[in-house]
């Protein structure tokens, strides 16, 4: 098992590459979901504003 983590002496290079890859993948997933949340919240705010000021307010 420790041989697996040692990566034949290249541990630092291999694991930092995979760590970076994981970071980029997580950033992509997080930022995509965050962009959707932000857009959705903004759209709902805009709707609420137009509903409260518009003539069809209930």
């Amino acid at each position: 098992m420790s041989a697996f983590f040692a990566m034949g002496g290249y541990a630092g290079y291999v694991w930092s590459s995979y760590g970076l890859a994981a970071a980029i993948l997580i950033w992509n997933i997080w930022s995509a979901l965050a962009a959707h949340q932000v857009a959705r919240a903004a759209a709902q705010r805009a709707l609420a504003r137009s509903a409260s000021t518009g003539p069809s307010a209930s």
Binding site: A32, A39, R40, A43, L47
Partner: peptide
């Protein structure tokens, strides 16, 4: 797909289907 949904929302702020 996730980002396209966000971009569609940004371009359709006041459309009635959002209601």
């Amino acid at each position: 797909c996730v980002r396209v949904r966000a971009e569609v929302l940004r371009r359709e702020r006041n459309a009635h289907w959002l209601q």
